[in-house]
């Protein structure tokens, strides 16, 4: 397989959501063929530029997945399968990217705020950002205001993503922004918010920098 064939195959399998050869994909009959793990390993053995794998196979294919999700052609499990592929590929690529001196696009702290245990959307965003080349620090769910702001400060993160799925917990996002101001680090970090009850109006009201309807919009906004 030459380089472009291999990169195309990796992209195809990310879209199909196949981590290992035994996995079936979105389309039937793919079981047994090499999948993301085998193909990325093969690509690295062939000394293909890891950055190229990242950009041409992972990032681009996740954009395709995003489009399919928007069109409702893909449902949640399809997207999670593809996201898992990117996560696995990134774990394989990470040491090579560091060796190649590829710098991350920046540190991104992400958390579901205090009182809220929902993490499906947050996890998807985290994996997508990883796939797009950010160094993601995922604090998990039910994370206190203090822990979020302390992490942003200590890690000197450039970006902060906050998630909440409840109308009762979304107000915590406002408290986080407030605390960042009190700590004097609000200007150093871009704050993105997301989750079902949030909106552009809400983001504006609490003084966040952006509202993301979903993981793909988050990536779009990050590009800008």
């Amino acid at each position: 397989m030459n380089t472009s064939e291999l990169l195309e195959k990796i992209a195809f399998n990310v879209i199909q959501g196949r981590v290992e050869a035994e996995d079936d994909g979105f389309d039937p009959g793919l079981e047994g063929r090499p999948a993301v793990t085998e193909l990325v390993t093969e690509a690295l053995n062939q000394n293909i530029d890891p950055k190229k794998i990242l950009m041409e196979s992972l990032t681009e294919s996740m954009e395709t997945v995003g489009e399919k999700f928007e069109k409702k052609e893909y449902l949640i499990p399809d997207m999670l399968a593809s996201a898992e592929c990117v996560g696995v590929a990134m774990d394989l690529l990470a040491p090579h990217l560091i060796k190649a001196g590829v710098e991350s696009k920046g540190k991104f702290v992400i958390a579901t705020v205090k009182g809220d245990l929902h993490d499906i959307g947050k996890n998807i965003v985290a994996i997508m950002l990883k796939g797009a080349g950010y160094q993601v620090i995922d604090l998990g769910t039910d994370v206190s205001v203090d822990r979020i702001t302390t992490t942003v400060k200590e890690k000197q993160a450039s970006f902060l993503g906050l998630s909440a799925l409840l109308t009762t917990t979304m107000r915590v996002m406002g408290e986080v922004v407030q605390k960042l101001k009190e700590e004097g680090i609000r200007d150093r970090v871009k704050v993105l918010v997301g989750g079902a009850p949030t909106s552009i109006e809400f983001a504006r009201k609490i003084g966040a920098d952006a509202y993301c309807k979903d993981a793909f919009q988050a990536l779009e906004i990050m590009k800008k």
Partner: peptide, 9 residues
Amino acid sequence: DRYCRRYMR
């Protein structure tokens, strides 16, 4: 049925 593949298909 990993990621509900067969069910959704």
